[in-house]
Design a protein around this nucleic acid. Structure first.
Length: 417
DNA sequence: TGACGTCAAGATCCG
DNA sequence: CGGATCTTGACGTCA
């Protein structure tokens, strides 16, 4: 079973994507952005391989305005080497990549120009995967589109537009249920008419269920039948409801117990699970560490990345986790992540937050300029007085960590959580 | 016409 | 001036 995350990685220096607005989008600028983003993608792929993550969604913004302004630019030739390198790494690692145009790519729109732009957008996505040298098991996930007051008609229009797509696009396209209009029943009905594989999204289903009273497992089995041999293993999307926000909003992190319960009822066959969650790779690593025994050193590495975030919220749990990891012949993954989740669910007290920030400050306090020192102290002081929030203290520290290349802090989670 | 979702760019504010 | 923080942009549908 592969578990993956979408588009960007936290705590991976050099993986940041860039973009620009339409009015600043000269050819020159676009080409340089594409070069930068390909390097960033390469960095993320290398991180994934290092971390044992073998499922990854490539951001649609890899090529800014890829289906319009940049569509005719020679980025394939200019960046042929990086493209080949990235593709090789993905294939050699047995990693599966995917892409997912957003809610604004609407193939079934009654408006011809909207549908045409959707076609161009899908062609752009297929081009990225093709230029990377990836086979058709590396999919493009799409929603059915709009309803326009007549769902059946809208589903029919999707099918007719789908059949007109170029084979390069059609062979990669898979359909996902959405959280508002087309439930998994609608999607299966539509997809089965033309043989499109279906991605089941559990949270979309929870928010927008299909009439029939089926469990996640039932739907996953039914979707499984749509995945043929050359399409690769079945894919599902898994996410959890954010406890504060409106129904359908993704949680900040995947709760390990909910995830394990979901996994336990899965069919006994190959399945790729794409997590949709704010903390991205952090949850992917967590889930991987919890479903397979990856050695205590893997947990120690995780602890090193989490520890200041725990220190600022729960010094008690900080000690408890250190205690857990002291037993070298155990593998207390689930216990450790439960303690981490428990800690992260409460906001830091002012005193603990300042204490943790001072610990982190210790990494470069001897090297910084007087001005930087003053800036940090002022930020802490204002936070102490309640005049600003912790984010400003952390962003000051992040700026310093970048400037002084403090790898340990840049690859830890404290500055990003 | 604004909400929806998501990210970084761009604009502005501040010491 | 440089860095922190806020607002805007990009996209289409629907209330």
């Amino acid at each position: 079973m592969n578990i993956g995350y979408a588009c960007l990685a936290l705590g991976v220096p050099g993986s940041e994507m860039k973009s620009c607005t339409r009015k600043n989008a000269t050819e020159e600028r676009l080409l340089s952005l594409i070069g930068h983003n390909l390097d960033a993608l390469n960095t993320m792929i290398e991180y994934n391989i290092r971390s044992g993550i073998r499922l990854f969604r490539i951001s649609s913004d890899l090529v800014p305005f890829g289906s319009s302004l940049a569509a005719e630019l020679p980025w394939r030739t200019m960046y042929g080497d990086v493209l080949a390198t990235i593709g090789c790494k993905i294939r050699n690692a047995g990693m599966r990549a995917s892409m997912h145009p957003g809610q604004y790519t609407v193939l079934n729109s009654p408006e011809g120009s909207v549908a045409q732009r959707a076609v161009e957008d899908l062609e752009y996505h297929a081009k990225v995967l093709h230029f990377l040298g990836l086979g058709t098991e590396h999919k493009i996930v799409l929603h059915l589109g709009g309803a326009y007051g007549d769902k059946r008609q809208a589903m029919k229009r999707f099918i007719s537009r789908y059949t007109e797509l170029r084979p390069e696009v059609r062979d990669r396209l898979v359909l996902e249920n959405d959280h508002r209009l087309f439930g998994i029943g609608d999607v299966l009905k539509t997809a089965s008419k033309v043989g499109i594989p279906v991605v089941y999204d559990n949270l979309h289903h929870a928010v927008n269920p299909t009439e029939e009273s089926c469990t996640d497992l039932d739907w996953i089995k039914r979707c499984g039948e749509t995945w043929t041999i050359n399409g690769g293993p079945q894919k599902v999307h898994y996410s959890q409801q954010h406890t504060q926000k409106k129904p359908g909003a993704h949680s900040d992190s995947i709760q390990v117990d909910g995830f394990l319960a979901f996994c336990q009822q899965l069919p006994d066959r190959e399945l790729d699970i794409m997590l949709e969650v704010k903390d991205k790779n952090l949850s992917a690593l967590k889930c991987l560490n919890c479903i397979s025994r990856r050695g205590i050193s893997s947990l120690e590495a995780e602890w090193a990345r989490y520890k200041y975030s725990i220190l600022e919220r729960s010094p008690h749990n900080y000690d408890a986790i250190r205690g857990l990891l002291r037993e070298k012949d155990t593998y207390p993954a689930v216990e450790m992540y439960r303690l981490i989740e428990m800690s992260l669910s409460v906001p830091p007290t002012t005193g603990n937050a300042v204490n943790a920030a001072q610990h982190v400050w210790g990494y470069f306090k001897d090297r910084v300029s007087e001005a930087e020192k003053a800036r940090f102290q002022r930020a802490v002081h204002k936070f102490w007085l309640g005049e600003t929030d912790l984010r400003s203290v952390k962003s000051t520290l992040l700026t310093l960590a970048r400037k002084y290349q403090e790898e340990y802090l840049l690859t830890g989670y404290y500055l990003y959580l």
